[in-house]
């Protein structure tokens, strides 16, 4: 089954790319954008039919590789 994961920066961690995107949007016609935070999205095909087993495996993957828990949080969708 396919498991989807979103990795985002923790609150309070500087996101210079998000800031640059926000400023660019403000400079276009979107001047009501007050903040942009950029993250990562993964689609992981796991050879496992049991949903809870697959998700718990993906959780391990997130902790060990996909996210760096010093600055990032992850959410399994």
């Amino acid at each position: 089954m396919k498991v989807k994961v979103i990795v985002t920066l923790k609150n309070g961690v500087l996101d210079p790319q998000g800031k640059a995107i926000q400023q660019t949007l403000n400079g276009m016609t979107f001047d009501n954008v007050s903040e942009v935070r950029q993250g990562k999205y993964f689609e992981i095909e796991v050879n496992e039919n049991n949903e809870s087993k697959a998700k718990s495996q993906v959780e391990e993957m997130c902790k060990k590789l996909l996210a760096n828990l010093v600055i990032e949080d992850f959410k399994i969708l």
Partner: peptide
Amino acid sequence: LPGILQQNKYL
């Protein structure tokens, strides 16, 4: 080592 190296502040 503790911590992480993030992208430079001014990109």
